[in-house]
Amino acid sequence: MNATPHIIESALLLLVAFLLGCVVGYFARRFSGRSAPAAPAPQATPLPVEPAPVRAPVTSIPAAETPPAAKPVPAGTARKKPAAKKPAPAPKAPKSQPLPDDLKKIRGIGPRIEAGLNSHGVYRYAQIARWSRKRITELDTHLTLRGRIDREQWVEQAKALSKAAK
């Protein structure tokens, strides 16, 4: 059998094999759970933390964070350790302050991305609704979102959710 007439057929078969592989690979990863470890977000340059984040009220400070200077110090030696002047950072959020918004209500944001956003100081829909183009680009880069903020319209969703929350 002469192989030359089968060039097109061969190419078609190769294409079919490739496409089948694409489908298999896509669904294999999609349904493989956590077999593909998430690449850590690059943290080369620290991002500015957005102002006025509302953190979950801290009810207790871990013992490790409590400075040893919290022990009663004689009055004369109190000034030797500047850390002793500020015992422990008291929880800034009073009990009356609202809890952070559930960012997972925004379509496309899951627990992992929500945690990433929280690490950048994003806790509220209103914060996302105010994102500038520069901020979107920064977060997209740092959280490896690959354009999902625009594609899934997080800002628009956050505006709607923010309005609904009010």
Binding site: F18, L20, V24
Partner: peptide
């Protein structure tokens, strides 16, 4: 080709 496709997918 299938392996390349799987990697691509």
């Amino acid at each position: 080709a299938a392996v390349i496709g799987i990697a691509t997918g």
